[in-house]
Nucleic acid binder design. Sequence first.
DNA 1: GATGAATGAGAGTTCATTCAT
DNA 2: AATGAATGAACTCTCATTCAT
Lengths: 187, 187, 187, 187
Amino acid sequence: MVRDQIISAAVRIFSRQGFDAAGMDEIAQVAGVAKGSLYYNFRSKSDLFAAVVTEGIDDLHRQIERILSRSSTVRQVLDGLVRENLQACQDYPELVDLIMRDQSGGLDAAAADRVRQARETYVQYIAGLLEDGMRDGLLRRGDSLGMAGAYLAFLHAFSRAGRARGRNLSDMAAEAADLIMGGLCRP
Amino acid sequence: MVRDQIISAAVRIFSRQGFDAAGMDEIAQVAGVAKGSLYYNFRSKSDLFAAVVTEGIDDLHRQIERILSRSSTVRQVLDGLVRENLQACQDYPELVDLIMRDQSGGLDAAAADRVRQARETYVQYIAGLLEDGMRDGLLRRGDSLGMAGAYLAFLHAFSRAGRARGRNLSDMAAEAADLIMGGLCRP
Amino acid sequence: MVRDQIISAAVRIFSRQGFDAAGMDEIAQVAGVAKGSLYYNFRSKSDLFAAVVTEGIDDLHRQIERILSRSSTVRQVLDGLVRENLQACQDYPELVDLIMRDQSGGLDAAAADRVRQARETYVQYIAGLLEDGMRDGLLRRGDSLGMAGAYLAFLHAFSRAGRARGRNLSDMAAEAADLIMGGLCRP
Amino acid sequence: MVRDQIISAAVRIFSRQGFDAAGMDEIAQVAGVAKGSLYYNFRSKSDLFAAVVTEGIDDLHRQIERILSRSSTVRQVLDGLVRENLQACQDYPELVDLIMRDQSGGLDAAAADRVRQARETYVQYIAGLLEDGMRDGLLRRGDSLGMAGAYLAFLHAFSRAGRARGRNLSDMAAEAADLIMGGLCRP
DNA sequence: GATGAATGAGAGTTCATTCAT
DNA sequence: AATGAATGAACTCTCATTCAT
């Protein structure tokens, strides 16, 4: 209970201010608990950050895996990948900003490693799906790992820009899917 | 002279550690000047950061504009855009990381605004090139501003991933250009 | 039962780390009870410390009084005094370190007073024995209270130094008795 | 200048409250400088403490060495040793309390080591003088190192007790010299 | 009688900033 | 123009203490 309050306050504060600029005082205040409770539940600010990001990535990963498991064709999987990642950008913008932004600055080594590992696991999952598509013949062959990371960055940036100007999700999803799958050039 | 030493030390330190984790002491030391000199040349840490980023973006902008001005067709411009942005990621990785990473955390409002504006100017320049391509009929119509930002993020992420695994630039440029222009799907 | 576990854990922790550096958490853990139990049995950390030290001094006092009561001559009493105090340094080194070290730093006023009083009572008991010796004509006349405190400090320091280099007790006792009774100068 | 203010404030505060209970805030206030200045001149609280104690011991050591160098006989050296150590207890009571009290509690390992080393050097110097006396035939043979530490503890305790009751120094010095050299037993 | 999650005042430490030189 | 000793507000983290169970 208290732990959950802390996590969700931390998502908000960390995503708005970044790791270094965020203050434990403010997180405690937003969570509605005493400062000491942060340290009763997490070893350090770095540890809290790592918990927030890795749990966020894991949730996202599980949710997308569950949804994509319903798809029967490779094409459906890839369309779903774009749509669900954009959806996550829309539904949990703060968490996704947090996951995508490089925060390595003040994190201690252990926490930075946990975060890197969690991110890598997710990117490798996406890369695996792209490799399925390549084997299937649907996708152009290439550096699947680089693509996976780059397309996530693409979707995140595209979503932020669209959101800033109030675009609705389904338009953006359609356009993003076209750009990613079909490319920038006119067919 | 001193100013240039400071700027180039600041690029290095800021890009490695982020705005908040970077220390004025370390910047002074790397620049080989006394800490007081930083404040003789720049009003504050935020001001130094804003100077570094805006000057970096402006240099990049000018350089790319100059190179692209030699292109005669829209197609050449767009290919050059991809190639030159990747080239910049390769040649000035620290500066580009600095430009792309969101550092809004600890910056004061004025500096954050200058940075945002400089970034926006560059993104709008790219968006203008994309609109040329759309008018020309070469490119799919769409949210040019969103695309410009998203493709920059794509290139940056793709470049980082490739660099981490030692890929050479021209391979990456060719692959990136194919992905961006032609899409992920097999032709 | 629980109280005894706490006391003996507290002796260990306090003597190793000093009052301030010792933690209630660690005492509870070593005692094998929950932290709340410390506060069920003692009003505060200061109170626990005062209990440990005063009870330790009282035990020591009683034990030495009992042993010395068997002596029939003043000379025997004084030899026994040296031997038994050294013995205590050997048998309960942690407790004796705790008693001898000035811990007034973080103690609250009430606890500091209890500790001071217990120490004083013991020193006055020793001073009384010295005065018996003076009246008896065996000992040089002088500041019995000052001597009592100073000889305890002497024995404690001598014992620590000897223990650190593995000297055995009876050698040390003989040497200490000679030094105290006969002085540093060769007879 | 500022460094000296800090050192002398630190002697006062540390000796009154002990290492752990002393606060950097209070030291800064007593020194009449800002808290940051403590950390500009010393790496940490432990470092400040180690500097205070080691410099204090070294000063004491040098001063006593200088004074004893005027003595021509072993007997004079030993009398001087007692008198000068008592004098130091009288002149710099806070510093001597600080040196004699075991503060190992919260000190970090490096600082604890520096302190231990400085203390040991001084005790070994005293032990060397005692060995001179033994070789000379004036002193009873025995554990010179243990004696050196024990007699310092004796003098310190004797001085504190005397001072608490307003005894004057020369009486105490004469009595202490008799006790140490001639022993407790009546000649 | 015993627990341990929760607390919050206060600790040591950092670091952007200033200013006399 | 350039310096660096000095600053103090703000930070992360600790830990004795409480209280509902």
